[in-house]
Each structure stands twice: as C-alpha cells, then as structure tokens.
Design a protein around this nucleic acid. Structure first.
Lengths: 229, 229
DNA sequence: CCCGCGTCAAGAGCACTGCTCTCGAATTTG
DNA sequence: CAAATTCGAGAGCAGTGCTCTTGACGCGGG
C-alpha cells in the first residue's frame, strides 16, 4: 500500500523535524521549551503540533529517550574502542565519553539528570535507556573479574545492602559480587555528580583545568574500585 | 525614630510571610512557583508582591540563600555534635544530615542542586553559603590531619590539578595537602550524586533499603579518603 | 494639628504559555 | 467518483510574569 505509506512517510518526517526544532530550542531556552515557538519556527500554528504529539510532555519524553540513547551509545562506543583487558583505559574512556556528550549537549543532559519537572513523571519507556550508561560502566568490572584482573574487595556488606544489590545484579550482572557492584555504583554516582558540578557551574572559578581535574577524579574512583594500573 | 520603624517592621514581616508562603508553594509545585498564586494565598493582588521583591528571580534568590544556609547549618550542626577525633563518625553524621535535610526539603534541594533555571544566573551572594557544606566536610579531613589520625595519600597529582587545588586550599584550608583535598572533593561530589539519585527517583524500584545503602556508599568514600575506623 | 510626602494595594493591560474545539481543505480509501 | 480520514488554521480559555496608573492610607515636619 504505497498510498498510505506516502502519508506515513510525510508524517514521520514531520515528527522528526519537530523533534529537531525542539532540540534546537532546548539548547537555547533550557527545559521550558515552548510548543508555540517550535510551531512558529516550522511555519505552523501551535495547534497543528498536537496532530503529532498529544502534549508537550510527550514531546519531552521523546526527546528524553533519544537523549538517553545518544548518551548510552557514546559511552558504549568509547568503551568498545578499547582493548577488553585494558580495564582502566575503558573506565576512563567511558567516563570521558559521558562528560564529552554532556558538555556538547548541556540542555539535554540537564533534561536527563537535572531536577525533575514538577508535573512530569518519567514513563516506563525511559528506564531501559536510562540504565545503559551505568550498565556499560559496571560491565567493565564484570569483564575484569572474568579475566582475573580484578579482585572483589574482601568486605562484608550489611545484609540489607547485599540484598538490594543482589536483586540488581541478578537482573543485569549475574555472578558479579555485590561488593564490587557497590563500588561500581559509587563510581557511577560520583561520575554523575562530577559532570553535574561542572555543567551546573559549581566549579566555575574554582577549577580552571577541567579536563585534568576530571581525569584525576575518575582515577580516584578507579582506585576505589581496584582497577589495575 | 520609632515611627518609621513601625513601617519597617511591618515591611519586614511582609517579606518574611511572602517567603514563607513561597516556600510552601515551592514544596508542592516545584521550581516554577507562581507569584500570582503566592499573592492569592496572601489575599493580595499579584502586583503588590512587586513592592517587596522586584522580580520573581529575586524572590527565588532569597529562597536559595536561605536554603543554602539551612543546609549548611544542618551539616555543620551534625558535624559539631560528634567528638572532634571521631573522624568517621563526623563524616557519616555530616553526610546523613545533608541527606536528611534534602529528603525533608526536596524542592529546595532541587532548587540548589538541580538543573539551573534557564534565564537565571546565580548572583554572587549565593557562592559563600553554597560553599559551607563542602567546607564542613573537608574540615573533617583538616582536623584529622592535624590530630595525626589521617595520613595524606602518597600520590603525585598531575601538576594542573595540584595547581587548582592549591588555590582552593590556600583560600579555605591552608596547609591541607592537595591530594587529600582532592579526595575530599571526590567525597563531596559523590555525596551530591548520591542524594540527587535518591531524590530524583533514580533508584526508585532498585534500592528499597535507602538508609543502609546510603551509609554504605558514604563509608566507601570514607575508605577512599582514608578515615580510620 | 494637619498638610504633603512616601508607601502601599488594587486594577487594567500586554505578551506569552499549554491546550481544546471547530471548521474548511486536502488526501487517501473503498 | 464518493466517503472517510487526516491535516492546518483560527478562535478561545485559563493561566503566567510584569508594567503602569490610580486612589487610599500612615507618617513626619511645619
């Protein structure tokens, strides 16, 4: 049925263009993007947008999912570009990729990891893409353990913590000791804080040498995890 | 001049009431608080608010500064409540105090540490209050070093990093080795990420035992810093 | 004491927002 | 070819921050 396909194709192109224009607005106006402004940029009237997105939040959700995917791809690609056994190299590459993506797309990063929009609840469709960056990071630990290059820390976790981490591990990293997973999550948590601090201007006048500071901070977390030099 | 003082006192009370009502709205409606709604709650018309605050952003700034102070006080009080030599106890108490405050005032925390409001630039008056929580945290390291209970890590920092940290240290923590300051900042960065993850719903279904997870994560950073058990 | 200055709240109004509904026009479908 | 679907435009609603004008009130100096 080529007839209906024409319409479908035009419609898909319209959706893509709306998202592209919205992304552009996002980078200048921040999270409060205006449907009317997007419509104006496309030579349309605001109500026409509603033919393609039922609400502004749905548009935001689409942008969020695409942003998660882009970030996840960037991190995964950087990790994949290193030798599987170069654990520290993979760690640094993945961390830097996340930071580079965030610096290149600050508004989208803020959309993902900034304060949640008051009325907006992230739909379930976003949780899988959101997991990809930390999964890539902890995957480095999994590989290191499997290759015998990384020893699980000799540490007894409090039982409730071990329990929670066991559930997470069973779903995403079967066989990974909980103590190692805990340190991987600490690394991910720290990485998020590090990028957010830089992006949200919290070390504006304090730290001029951003790149070096970032690398050293992530190296500290690699030490905590036990990644071999 | 008691006459003009009456006016001044009424005016100060009005300002306080506006801030109180705005804070209440903040906790329910998030960062996009409405001047008109605040005015309605006070039985006033929106334009009357402008007698006391020249713009919505100025009101936000006032709330931000008060929030920074409240958080800083909470952290400092928790730290001060422990024996000066119980470094790990102080660390945990300070971290927990920050988290407790954030959980009790999620909207204000988001205002401080969430994505920056697009048009809004934090005025200089906010930087000093913003420094107080991390200063309290790193102060624990300074005391530990002075008491001989904490050894600076034997580590050579990259020169640019050492340089930046030396400037920060000279202003706030004279005599503190840069390597230790770096770990203190890692701890602060991680703490911020940890609280944000919990508050912004990123470990909603994943980690049911929040308290224990939080304590264990901060303990990991205490390990990295080298705080003695 | 009381008049005038300064402060204050109110109201109207501007430009903007997300969103809904209706109405023609174009296009696809049977 | 006729019917059904899709689409864009426009008007309109309720809300926003903010400005300006108007009138009332309290205060201090003459």
């Amino acid at each position: 049925m080529p007839a209906s396909s024409i319409r479908a194709r035009v419609r898909a192109e319209m959706i893509d263009e709306i998202k592209a224009v919205a992304r552009r607005h996002l980078s200048t106006d921040g999270a409060n993007l205006s449907l009317r402004a997007v419509a104006r940029d496309m030579g349309m009237v605001s109500s026409a947008i509603y033919r393609y997105f039922p609400s502004r939040d749905e548009l935001l959700t689409a942008l969020i999912i695409e942003a998660y995917d882009a970030l996840g791809d960037a991190v995964a690609a950087a990790d994949a570009g290193r030798d599987r056994l170069d654990l520290r190299g993979r760690w640094h590459a993945a961390c830097r990729a996340a930071r580079d993506w965030a610096l290149a797309h600050p508004a989208e990063y803020a959309l993902l990891y900034g304060s949640p929009v008051p009325g907006y609840a992230a739909p379930d469709a976003t949780v899988e893409p959101a997991q990809r960056p930390p999964v890539t990071l902890v995957g480095i630990l999994r590989d290191g353990l499997a290759a015998g290059r990384l020893d699980p820390p000799a540490e007894d976790l409090p039982e409730p913590v071990r329990e929670d981490l066991a559930v997470i591990g069973a779903a995403l990293f079967p066989g990974l000791p909980e103590s190692l997973l805990a340190r991987g999550m600490a690394g991910w948590t720290h990485l998020f804080g590090l990028i957010s601090f830089e992006l949200f201007g919290r070390l504006n006048r304090a730290v001029p040498h951003r790149d070096e500071y970032f690398d050293h901070q992530t190296a500290l977390m690699a030490d905590l995890i036990g990644l071999p030099a």
